[in-house]
């Protein structure tokens, strides 16, 4: 019995290590690419070269990298904050105060999510121009803070929340908003952390819509810059790899920051108390 158990264990670890290698290998290649010249990257060179400094210098002098990073950070920061407030309130409203009327609204919203964005670009663009939000970061933020995706996700995870806790708080005389902010949110930290990571990624990597409403290089975000860099007759792959690595770092940092909430079950531990 004991032996059988350990064989299973070994198989599990073999599986984990294999998946680990598959997941991580392309990142090694990306970082190696950062240190090589364009020609070497195209040739598929897998070892480290000595072009890193020159790639970084090119990136920060030829392209306005600092400003572009700040643009991305600004847009993404406000978007994530907005989503966490607006969309999580909506998810809470739909799940906790379930009513037939709101269910119909919910069904409609979910259906909306299925419309491909390309089909909506032209009317949405007209709207943005009429609201004088063309070429502004606020236009970008405003259009993304009501995220059907996050509302849907949070509502599905809120289903696991024991309704009795809310009932108990009401009996204690707590107001509805107080229950939401000081009882509900703290006990759903892992779901909020996931929502934060996902909205950060979505906003940081957003491409099609920022492309349409941001008109000048001054307003550009990182993703837009990488895309225009890689479309050259002769792309500078080393510099592009550097830009990609730098653009990926913030997401990794955010993930590290939030992932501690995945380590222990929040609800589980709060119930135990």
């Amino acid at each position: 019995m004991k032996k059988n158990y350990s064989i299973n264990r070994i198989l599990v670890y073999v599986f984990l290590v294999f998946t680990f290698i598959v997941s991580v290998f392309p990142f090694y290649w990306m970082v190696a690419g950062m240190t090589n010249s364009a020609v070497d990257v195209i040739k598929g060179k897998m070892t480290f070269g000595n072009q890193m400094l020159s790639n970084i210098t090119t990136l920060f002098t030829t392209y306005n990298m600092v400003r572009i990073l700040l643009n991305s950070l600004k847009v993404t920061g406000f978007t994530v904050l907005g989503i966490l407030i607006v969309s999580s309130m909506a998810a809470y409203g739909f799940q906790i105060y379930s009513s037939p009327a709101r269910e119909k609204v919910y069904g409609l919203i979910i259906l909306f999510m299925m419309v491909p964005f390309i089909a909506l670009m032209i009317p949405l663009f007209r709207l943005i121009v009429k609201m004088h939000l063309l070429n502004t970061h606020s236009g970008l933020v405003l259009t993304s803070i009501a995220s059907v995706f996050i509302i849907f996700f949070l509502r599905q995870s809120f289903k696991a929340f024991p309704y009795e806790i809310i009932q108990a708080a009401r009996v204690d005389g707590a107001g509805e908003f107080r229950i939401f902010f000081s009882i509900f949110i703290p006990s759903m930290k892992s779901s909020y952390a996931a929502a934060a990571i996902y909205s950060f990624m979505a906003s940081w990597n957003a491409y099609l819509w920022p492309l349409i409403i941001l008109q000048t290089d001054k307003q550009k975000t990182v993703t837009l810059m990488i895309s225009s860099m890689s479309s050259a007759y002769f792309p500078e792959w080393g510099v592009i790899m550097t830009a990609i690595v730098i653009a990926t770092l913030p997401i990794i940092i955010v993930f590290f920051g939030f992932q501690k909430y995945f380590v222990q079950g929040m609800l589980g531990s709060s119930l135990k108390q």
């Binding site: 407030i85 309130m89 909506a90 809470y92 739909f94 709101r102 609204v105 405003l142 009501a146 939401f180």
Partner: peptide
């Protein structure tokens, strides 16, 4: 219930329903 979803609803109404 309506209060909690109102903000999202207004935004979605304008920015999604019309398009």
């Amino acid at each position: 219930g309506w209060l909690f979803i109102s903000l999202a609803l207004i935004l979605l109404g304008v920015l999604l329903f019309y398009p």
